[in-house]
Design a protein around this nucleic acid. Structure first.
Length: 821
RNA sequence: GCCCCGAUAGCCCAAUGGCAGAGGCAGACGACUUAAAAUCGUCACAGUGUGGGUUCGAGUCCCACUCGGGGCACCA
């Protein structure tokens, strides 16, 4: 009896079957298959899954299911990045408990993932807000602390006045808080840091090894972010003081062209020099500093901003030629980059010449680039050239002059070659409730005391009775029972550190926790790590190109140095899927273009949505939901499903007796499909499945008919291939074809090479690259035979009339190109 | 300002330097039907953003530009 393809019915039919079968269990003891670790970036539980999740998990699932079909034991776990501000803000807004809110969302997302038929191993699950997870954040923090990689310092930090918390450099985007878009200000606070800068060189250099495996975009973003500059640190003695101005410069070759010094207005040295300046100068300085502090980043970054500054009345001495250089302060020099001071070479630096012009300072050319003298034109020349007016450096090119200048200052003991990074240490403490408590106790007598490991975890106290409103200090400071403890060292009165960790700490190592998510003995098993890690394929959004990926790379390198893992990069391959847009822009409630995933699933079914995500285009491109047709995906699945229903032969029939043409289609498909999936051209893979479906339809209706064994072979391979995109439809097809569940474990076969070779091929004849004739020839045709055939062609003869042949290119058996003079 | 990515049919997208079209959407026509939907089938539509170059041959490689998207940016 012919039945209709019924999306809902087959979803309801197969879900419970899979629950029993657990096709994606990766923990079987006797499993001898080779391993693959495929990981999707774990979600933040801020509501139900949305279209973006649907895309990411559809694509990650294609990869996981593909390797599973290829005979690998695939670990494909999932968890929740469950700490963070949204839970806390929701709690404040609606008077809920952050924990209850979070776990409700997790339950909802988990149910949606199950319905979405993600091939997750449900025995490997974690939530970062669970003490069994975050105890290891604390344990790792203390390991870092032991090694000097976690430390506290006072500094001018990024402060979000709206979130009432500090932010890491990476969380400030264009001067705004990445979470709430408030203008970020500076505040002097004592905070905890991880010493990422110790790893700056390795984090940069090791990106080379990821070339071709990570998107080049991400590699370049990380390189930009780390921002290494080569140059020198040079000391300029301050006249009349036992002090010097130390500067970092990438252009020591222009040392003779320095005509003044500039200090960051908010640097300590500027304060000191102002203190010893005349009263008038000091007052001017204080006024200027006030203005600088008031200016926010947006104003400060404006490129057409006029140069301002104050002369401090002091002079520094150029170590290379003993010239006197006036010392200025200005806001165009940043306190927290390099040494917070520069030597200004206005002739060869755009910013310095602007300042020199504004303050009427000397401009001295020391590099002849062939352009006009900057002192005349007021335009700095920053290109390469010949060094002039520079004593021992005269006549050298830039590279040699840099090397020579460094030698000279090193000989004099007033400087040395150096490199500098844009990257800063990672500020990890947050003045909020919903995060991992920092496992440090502050004792009046003993100072900072680590919580002994047998006292971990330091559990978060219940939120009940705590005021979670942002107020600039941690809500935990008010949990007095929790806060007040006796010092582990001297037993005297002491207080816990009341800050919590940045949630990026949680996600920096979670991929290792999946190896043994429930262990209370170790953060992760080193034996399991040897078996599975690093992650073979990581899938997630490009939004994490800098933050999360940099931090995870940093953690991995530290864990390597501690001896806990034997690799230095966490994610061997990375796929960044694009975003799902609607009518050209990101979906949002306020824009009114929100497409609800649950609605789409109700209307079109899970399979159609997953297939649409894979078919829309290259995975890294954005999908505009207005451009795609889930209804068409559903239609195709019905068409494929009917193929399986129409097959009349029995399972296990000898397919070699089948129609040769149909077999050829199937095996060409096998080859093309696997190539497409392995190169992540999922859209092409789907197109090939559609092509096979069209061939099989024709074979059934107008060819050898539904009983031909080759039709069965094609239908079975089609079902297996579709299992990557459409788990429900393909499982039902498999069932219609007389097989037991699950099609997901049926296993792909390789194409039979014998069926791929053609005996004849279409040869084309070009004249000057333009097609003139084509004919079918035997694949074994010789060049001479092909030439003769081409020359004999009437079309070719006609074209060649009156022309003289200069060259004949022959690529037997497919092509002849006749070039004329 | 510096760096990266992209531009192929009305639309989304394919195409190891070798016939511009694999697949889909939308469209036209036909078969089936009393009719419609569904289904099955057939067909049409671009010379690859612009201008140069390399090559026997360029959508593909190189150079310049235009447009779109993204990253970094008073970083010394």
């Amino acid at each position: 009896m012919q039945e209709e393809y019924n999306t809902r019915a087959i979803q309801d039919k197969w879900l419970p079957v899979w629950d029993d079968l657990k096709p994606f269990d990766s923990s079987k003891k006797d499993d001898t298959r080779p391993t693959k670790y495929v990981l999707d970036m774990f979600p933040y539980p801020s509501g139900d899954l949305h279209m973006g999740h649907a895309e990411a998990y559809a694509l990650g699932d294609v990869i996981a299911r593909y390797w599973s079909q290829r005979g690998y034991n695939v670990m494909h776990p999932i968890g929740w990045d469950a700490f963070g501000l949204p839970a806390e803000n929701a709690a404040i807004k609606r008077g809920l408990d952050p924990k209850a809110w979070t776990y409700e969302n997790i339950a909802q997302q988990k149910a949606s993932m199950r319905r979405y038929a993600c091939s997750f191993d449900w025995d490997r699950v974690l939530e970062t807000c669970n003490p069994s997870y975050y105890q290891w954040n604390q344990w790792l923090f203390l390991e870092f602390y032991k090694r000097g990689l976690a430390y506290r310092k006072n500094s001018n930090v990024n402060w979000c006045p709206s979130c009432q918390t500090v932010l890491a450099n990476e969380q400030v985007v264009q001067g705004l808080c990445e979470r709430c878009d408030s203008s970020v200000t500076k505040k002097s606070l004592t905070q905890w840091y991880f010493k990422v800068t110790d790893y700056a060189d390795r984090l940069l250099d090791d990106l080379d090894g990821l070339e071709g495996k990570w998107p080049s975009k991400v590699l370049s973003m990380q390189r930009n972010w780390i921002g290494r500059s080569q140059g020198a640190n040079i000391d300029f003695a301050i006249e009349g003081m036992d002090k010097s101005v130390s500067v970092f410069t990438t252009r020591p070759d222009t040392l003779y062209g320095a005509t003044f010094m500039v200090l960051a207005a908010d640097s300590e040295l500027a304060q000191e020099l102002a203190a010893s300046a005349p009263d008038v100068t000091r007052a001017e300085f204080e006024k200027y500093l006030d203005e600088v502090k008031k200016a926010n980043d947006i104003e400060r970054l404006a490129t057409d901003r006029k140069k301002t500054g104050i002369f401090l009345g002091h002079y520094a001495v150029n170590p290379i030629n003993d010239e006197r250089l006036p010392i200025w302060v200005s806001d165009y020099v940043l306190a927290d980059y390099g040494t917070g001071a520069i030597m200004a070479v206005p002739a060869h630096d755009d910013r310095d010449i602007e300042f020199a012009k504004a303050m009427d300072l000397e401009i001295k050319m020391v590099v002849d680039t062939g352009e006009a003298d900057p002192a005349e034109t007021g335009i700095a020349t920053s290109g390469d050239g010949v060094i002039v007016n520079s004593g021992p450096l005269d006549g050298l090119n830039k590279t040699d002059a840099i090397a020579r200048a460094i030698e000279i200052v090193e000989e004099k003991g007033t400087g040395k070659g150096a490199k500098n990074f844009r990257l800063r240490d990672w500020l990890i403490s947050r003045q909020r409730y919903w995060g991992t408590p920092i496992p440090i106790i502050h004792c009046e007598k003993c100072g900072e005391v680590p919580v002994p490991s047998d006292q971990l975890p330091v559990e978060l106290p219940d939120s009940k009775g705590l005021d979670l409103q942002p107020k600039g200090t941690s809500p935990l400071g008010a949990a007095s029972e929790w806060l007040n403890v006796s010092c582990p060292s001297c037993s005297g009165p002491a207080k816990r550190d009341s800050d919590t960790m940045d949630t990026f700490v949680d996600s920096s190592w979670y991929f290792l926790r999946f190896l043994n998510p429930n262990s209370d003995e170790v953060p992760f098993s080193q034996e399991e790590a040897k078996k599975w890690a690093p992650v073979d394929q990581y899938v997630g959004g490009v939004t994490h190109a800098i933050l999360h990926l940099l931090y995870a790379r940093f953690f991995t390198k530290v864990l390597h140095d501690i001896g806990m893992v034997d690799f230095e990069e966490p994610f061997t391959r990375l796929l960044n899927q694009g975003m799902v847009l609607m009518n050209g822009s990101a979906m949002s409630k306020s824009r009114g273009n929100l497409v609800r995933l649950s609605d789409q699933l109700d209307i079109h079914g899970v399979d159609a949505i997953r297939l649409t995500m894979a078919f829309a285009g290259p995975p890294e491109d954005d999908i505009d939901w207005a451009d795609v047709s889930p209804a068409a995906s559903a239609k195709f699945l019905a068409r494929a499903w009917r193929i399986a229903q129409d097959v009349k032969s029995n399972p296990g029939i000898d397919v070699t007796a089948g129609d040769a043409g149909v077999r050829k289609s199937t095996h060409q498909f096998l080859k093309g499909f696997q190539e497409a999936i392995e190169t992540h051209k999922f859209n092409v893979g789907v197109a090939k499945a559609m092509e096979l479906t069209n061939h099989l339809r024709k074979a059934i209706d107008q060819g050898p008919g539904p009983s031909d064994p080759a039709v069965r072979e094609g239908a079975e391979e089609l079902a297996k291939a579709l299992s990557l995109f459409a788990p429900y439809a393909s499982e039902d097809m498999w069932h219609l074809l007389g097989h037991e569940a699950s099609v997901a474990l049926a296993g792909f076969r390789d194409a039979d090479p014998a069926l791929l070779t053609e005996s004849t091929v279409m040869a084309i004849v070009q004249v000057n690259g333009k097609l003139r004739d084509k004919f079918e020839v035997d694949v074994s045709i010789t060049e001479d035979q092909l030439r003769a055939l081409a020359m004999a062609s009437v079309q070719v003869q006609k074209t060649l009339q009156g022309l003289e042949i200069s060259n004949v290119i022959i690529r037997a058996p497919k092509l002849v190109n006749i070039a004329t003079k």
